[in-house]
Simulated scan of single mutants.
Amino acid sequence: MKWNKYTIETTTAAEDYMSAMLADLGIEGVEIEDNIPLSKEDQADMFIDFLPELPPDDGVSHVSFYLEDDGEDRTELLKQVKEALEDLRKVVDVGSGVITSDQTEDLDWINNWKKFFSSFYIDDILIKPTWEELKPEDADKFLIEIDPGVSFGTGKHETTQLCIRQLLKYIRGNDAYTPENRTPKVLDVGCGSGILSIVALKLGASAVVGTDLDPDCMTSTHENMEVNHLDPSLGTFYVGNLIDDAALQEKVGTEEYDIVVANILADVIIPMAPVIPARLKRGGYFITSGIIDFKENAVKEAIEAAGLTVVEINHQGEWVNITARKPE
């Protein structure tokens, strides 16, 4: 299979913005090339014996994305990319913005990336890829094992970490959810690999329900639940769009959940916000991320317009978490 590779010449300051912009257009799996040296933390997470010698960082970055060469006309999509690129200039220096194209043969992307995913901690939670051996000294740790497969969700991304820390706070750290009282029921919108559902269950959620547009996510989620020795009956997962699918909304239920978590994108959260309050119990929490910082206010306004009260906003890098609460 052949792929058309499109490369945008931009700046290192615009890399995350560019990735978010392309994701908003339905383009995933971007490749970023720059001369920024790896941090010590990044080096610790990668199996590299000798780091490459890079030229001095000149602030230039190349962000590439791939589209299958299947004969389909991509003119309109590329036009949208160029228009979105010009919009980005209003908020960040995108550099020249020149787009070049090339053609490449199919690669084993699904497996090649695994060399860059190794065990790491989020607070006291150890997240380990399924293909890595558990170290003896980690045998008693709070462990989550993940194989994302073709789905999003290793836990490495800032947005996933923001959501996990909020789940820690609002499940483990919430005195209302005790064994003597009740454990929360959680809705995971855009469940991906199932990592947030699994974290919620391991923290003590009574049950999770998940939704995603991609059928492959159902496979990844069920497999990851099995790897983590979780009873399949604790999780129910549906393919569909919660925004406008009335049948899915009915399956998911009304006022069923103590927590709704959504690690998606700002442009999905905004139209989804009006349907969230109906899913939550009174006093329930909406935990969301996937929000690039320049869209923080738009998402906050949409959540408030839906009738929820924003209780906290957290940042990690250029990404934002907004947590809101349904009135009692």
Rank of each mutant, 00 (worst) to 15 (best):
H62T: 11
K90I: 08
R74E: 12
D73Y: 08
S61D: 10
T100L: 07
L85T: 09
G59H: 03
D87R: 15
D87E: 15
Q43N: 07
D45T: 07
D42H: 06
N112E: 07
V98K: 14
K114L: 03
G95F: 07
L107K: 13
L85Y: 08
L54T: 00
D45C: 08
S96G: 10
D49E: 14
G97Y: 10
F47K: 09
V91P: 04
D108M: 01
D58W: 00
F116E: 01
V94E: 09
T75Q: 11
S96I: 02
V91L: 08
W113V: 03
K82R: 14
V98T: 13
D73P: 02
N112M: 02
V60M: 01
R89I: 00
N112K: 03
H62E: 13
R89S: 05
E72P: 03
D73E: 13
G59T: 04
E83W: 06
D108L: 03
R74S: 04
T100Y: 10
E86H: 05
I99H: 06
V60D: 00
T100Q: 13
K79L: 12
R89T: 05
L67H: 14
K90M: 12
R89C: 05
S119D: 02
S119Q: 07
D106M: 05
A44T: 03
D106H: 06
P56Q: 02
V94T: 15
Y66Q: 09
H62L: 08
V92M: 09
G97C: 09
V81T: 06
D73W: 06
N111W: 01
E53S: 10
A84E: 13
T75F: 06
L78Q: 14
Q80A: 12
S118D: 02
P56H: 00
E53H: 09
D106E: 15
S119E: 08
L54F: 00
W109N: 01
A44M: 06
G97A: 12
A44S: 07
L51I: 05
E86M: 06
S101M: 15
T104N: 09
R74Q: 12
D108E: 13
E86K: 13
D102A: 15
A84H: 08
D70Y: 04
K90T: 10
